[in-house]
Nucleic acid binder design. Sequence first.
DNA 1: AGTATCCTGGAA
DNA 2: TTCCAGGATACT
Length: 289
Amino acid sequence: MPELPEVETIKLQLASVLLNHTIKSIEVRFGRIISGDANLLIGKKIINLRRLGKMLLIDLSGGWSLAVHLKMTGRLVYKKVRPAFAEASAGKEVREAEKSDINYDKDKHTHVVVNFTSGDRLFYHDQRKFGWLRVIKTKEINELPYVAGLGPEFLSSLTVKHFNNILKNSRQPIKQVLMDQKKLSGSGNIYANEALWCAKIDPRTKANTLSDGSIASLFHCFETILRQAIKWQGASSRNYRDAFGQKGTVQKHFEVYEREGAKCRRCGTAIKKIKLGGRGTYFCPACQR
DNA sequence: AGTATCCTGGAA
DNA sequence: TTCCAGGATACT
């Protein structure tokens, strides 16, 4: 699922409800999904939430952290405990929302449950089991291979100058460079497709042949699109849900992603789908050059 | 640079 | 039944 905006959304939401909560117990229902000793986190308090690339970090007291990578279908869903007396007075709107939601406690794809002393719970749910959690010392996070290999981040450490330099040094198709977390971190398939449409660049273009102007335009498109995507709480074209179990709304605004055959909103030409680096790639064959 | 792989489920 | 899916890695 999640690219930078989706993980950022979850981070911001969890930070709004989970800071200073103390872990009471952890239920591991599918052992392979988590590495390290989950019991080490019992009694620890959540002191910070961070994101590194597409990885979420929950920092706890005592120098321990819980690293989470959602990969394709992972979800982290927070459920506040609701006292029995609140049940009867819950608004109709709230009950409707819950009806359409999964019962995360009972669902077969819930693999880890973190219980807090408050009674609140955090569910790790992952249909395809590609994601992972890792209990790790906070000071050792930078040694994780995934973290050590991350390139500069969109919306933070990446400057247009650095972006230009990275692209000028790669002969790969631009879309593949944008998705390579070792070169640039944060973008995945959806936002690479969308940003290339925005900047009117053919995804197959060799990165090192792009003009400075095109690169500057692409950088600006990325910043704009990623910021807007965070405001829209991410893209739920399929499995993604935010930390409250809700869908994001970015998918309502896709220009090319999953729009094969539909008309380009800029020039009316049918959006084309090809395979690039093994991934579905959508673009307008007329206005992306 | 390509392709298989970890998994499950929805759509064609 | 086959193909496809917001990722990343380990192979050839």
